[in-house]
Amino acid sequence: MRNAHSDYRRPLALVALLAGALFLGGCYEDAGDVTLYEPGEYKGEPDPLLDDSGTESFNEALRERFAAGQTDR
């Protein structure tokens, strides 16, 4: 004759094991997210502004803006 306690202990143990695994899984950190520093190297996101800045048309627009708003009257 089987023990009545063991009938529901096994599923409980499985649920506890699963919950424990999930709990510990929450602590997992992907090592790929870490930015490894190298001296003198910028490793952040590239700034889209860098594509435009330095171009003649971009500079001309800023010069016009300056002349329109900041020169002495």
Binding site: T35, Y37, G40, E41, Y42, G44
Partner: peptide, 20 residues
Amino acid sequence: CPVDCFYTTDDGIVLHDKDL
């Protein structure tokens, strides 16, 4: 900067990445 989070645009503006 110990993590080199700064960069400079072609027209000399000094910016930085807050994620770094």
